[in-house]
Design a protein around this nucleic acid. Structure first.
Lengths: 205, 205
DNA sequence: CGATGTATAGTCCATGTGGACTAACCAACC
DNA sequence: GGTTGGTTAGTCCACATGGACTATACATCG
């Protein structure tokens, strides 16, 4: 099932993670994800959602648990996540969290990092920090040599921005790692809050 | 030709912009772009490159200028950018530079901003700054209400990061706008440097 | 009351993407 | 000196994406 992880799309990961909160039909997933503004992280369209769910089912990462119908409305097929599906999420996060190319994937990995143990998250993020720092020095030397060779600044704006944002990212990352190392920082499974249950109910039906 | 701009992919824009520097065949474009690390901004693969060039040609944004062959090697088809192609780049940058969704497109628009007049760039970036600032306040209130409702921090890591990076982006953006407003800041067309010509020659053949 | 609009739940298809493949050439290796 | 490996230049195809489309139900507004 290792290659199942390779073929996971960002939306696929979020769907599997979402289904951990309870069985749902695709349309409910879309609404919940939009309500939570998960569309900041991944494009959510009808076509992609239903196609993604179909693929995940064929891969055995989720399974149908029932079809119901209300009046003359279209059928609603409800899905649940399988064990293989949930461990695929874990594997995926494990792979994407330290990686420095693929900024979009990292944001999703970070958003789903709570599925991993705190210690593992810390070590994955340390790896990322080091890789990110070396990218930063590459960009810095790139800018220096470009300046030395007389490349006009107007061609370097994007690279300068990258350097600025990278510095901010490193500061944020260091701070997060320090917080996670502190035992006071809460981490781990929690009982569903009433607020969460209300949100689910509002999105259902 | 307005809808031609709508259908431009990021790689398409970069190809058209690149062809302004001289006629090339697709394989040379790939090498030059990789040498310049344009693959930081857009994925460059064989399939997508040749397909993209084909589409641009059908749209009249670039045109074949000759086919040559060396020995028994595959033919090399050389392309040039049309007037419609170059103005499509301008239009595309004009549209993407102020926009705050689509971070990947913005990086490309910024990298190609030198194709626009400095005054226009300043005004587009001002628009972007305001939009970006309002996103920042939305995120800030989102974090406040989440904290008030007792959402555990481990679910908010990605949002916190977004807030940090947004702050850094706004600082960078303000600084860039101030620099561009200064008449001392150089802007405009330049004669090709010898360094540039050497780079081209190294990538050709 | 009929018209307009929107939410629900989903299908379908044209395009775009990325990776595998080809096939010739050149270089190094030991 | 044959064989492995990389470069050149490009084709081809399976799959993912996103947007248009369908069809029912419910609300609302003059």
């Amino acid at each position: 099932m290792q290659d199942a992880v390779d073929r996971l799309t960002p939306l696929g990961v979020m769907v599997l993670a979402l289904l951990r909160e309870g069985d749902m039909h695709p349309y409910e997933m879309m609404r919940l994800m939009r309500a939570r503004r998960d569309d900041r992280l991944v494009a959510i369209t009808n076509g992609t959602m239903y196609h993604t769910v179909g693929r995940l089912e064929r891969a055995g990462l989720l399974a149908e648990v029932g079809v119901d119908r209300e009046g003359n409305r279209p059928e609603r097929t409800t899905y649940t996540v399988t064990d293989a599906g949930y461990s695929a999420v874990i594997e995926w996060v494990r792979r994407e969290l330290p990686r420095v190319d693929h900024p979009a994937e990292f944001r999703i990995a970070l958003a789903e990092a709570h599925n991993l143990a705190r210690d593992e998250v810390v070590s994955l993020l340390r790896t990322r920090r080091d890789a990110r720092a070396s990218v930063k020095s590459e960009i810095a030397t790139g800018l220096r040599t470009a300046a030395a060779k007389g490349v006009p600044t107007q061609y370097l704006l994007e690279l300068e921005r990258e350097e600025s944002l990278l510095a901010a990212d490193l500061e944020w990352l260091d701070r997060l790692i320090r917080r996670l190392e502190d035992e006071e920082f809460p981490w781990g499974a929690l009982a569903p809050t009433t607020r969460y249950l209300e949100q689910r109910k509002a999105a259902r039906l």
